[in-house]
Amino acid sequence: VVSQCEHCRQEKLLHEKLRFSGVEKSFCSEGCVLLYKQDF
């Protein structure tokens, strides 16, 4: 499944979907998940 990563904003293969404040977010890698959590 290809989707837009919430952190790097590129269309890539889906690595993980997480829920932040009740909204589902898509990420392409574990690195982007960690960076997004730092900024959140």
Rank of each mutant, 00 (worst) to 15 (best):
V2W: 10
L35S: 13
C28H: 05
H7E: 04
K12H: 01
G31S: 14
E11K: 06
L34R: 14
D39A: 11
S29L: 02
C5N: 15
K17T: 10
G31T: 14
Q4F: 15
V33R: 11
K37V: 07
H15P: 11
C32W: 03
C8E: 00
C8V: 01
K17H: 06
Q10M: 12
C32E: 02
R19C: 14
L35K: 13
E6P: 15
C28R: 00
R9W: 05
G31D: 13
L34I: 05
R19L: 12
E30A: 08
V1L: 07
L14M: 10
H15G: 08
S29R: 04
V2G: 06
F27P: 04
E30R: 01
S26C: 07
L35Q: 15
F27N: 07
Q38C: 00
C32T: 00
R19N: 15
S29V: 03
G22P: 00
E6T: 12
K12L: 03
E30F: 04
F27W: 06
L14A: 04
R9E: 05
K12N: 07
Q38E: 10
K37L: 06
R9Y: 02
K37C: 14
C5T: 02
E16Y: 10
H7K: 11
D39S: 12
E16A: 09
G31I: 13
C5R: 01
L18E: 11
K25Y: 08
K12M: 08
V33K: 13
F27L: 00
Y36K: 09
E24M: 05
S21D: 15
E6R: 01
S26L: 11
E11G: 04
G22M: 06
L34E: 15
Q38A: 10
L14H: 03
V33S: 12
V1A: 07
F40M: 13
S21W: 04
V23P: 07
C8Y: 11
E16Q: 08
R19F: 14
K37A: 01
K37T: 08
S21P: 04
V23A: 08
F27E: 02
C32K: 05
L13R: 05
V33I: 00
L34Q: 12
C32R: 01
R9D: 03
V2S: 07
V33T: 07
V23S: 06
Q4G: 12
K17W: 01
E16M: 07
C28G: 00
L35P: 06
E6Y: 05
V23E: 12
V2E: 09
C28V: 01
S29T: 03
E11S: 11
K12A: 06
L35N: 12
L34M: 13
V33D: 03
E30L: 09
V23D: 07
F27A: 04
E30M: 08
G31V: 09
V2Q: 07
L14R: 02
E16P: 06
R19H: 02
K37I: 02
Q10S: 05
V33H: 08
F20P: 11
E24A: 02
F20C: 03
C32G: 04
L34K: 15
K25M: 13
V2L: 05
Q4T: 15
K25E: 00
E24R: 01
L34G: 12
L35M: 12
V2P: 12
D39I: 11
R19M: 13
E16F: 14
F40T: 15
C32Q: 05
Y36M: 03
L35W: 03
C8P: 12
Q10P: 04
C8H: 00
V2N: 14
S26K: 10
C8L: 02
L35H: 06
S29Q: 02
C28D: 00
Q38T: 07
Q10C: 10
K17L: 10
E16T: 08
S21K: 08
K37S: 03
C5D: 02
K12C: 15
Y36W: 03
F20G: 05
K17P: 01
F40R: 14
L35R: 14
Y36N: 15
V33P: 02
S3P: 03
K37R: 04
L18R: 11
V2R: 08
S29A: 10
L35C: 14
R9C: 09
L34S: 09
C32V: 02
V33N: 06
E11Q: 10
D39G: 12
Q38W: 01
L18Q: 08
Q38L: 14
K25G: 01
L14S: 03
Y36T: 09
E16S: 06
E6G: 11
E30P: 11
F27C: 13
V23R: 06
K25T: 03
Y36F: 15
V23T: 06
F27M: 03
S26H: 13
C5V: 02
G22R: 01
E30S: 10
G31C: 03
S21M: 10
L13S: 08
F20T: 00
H7V: 11
Y36R: 07
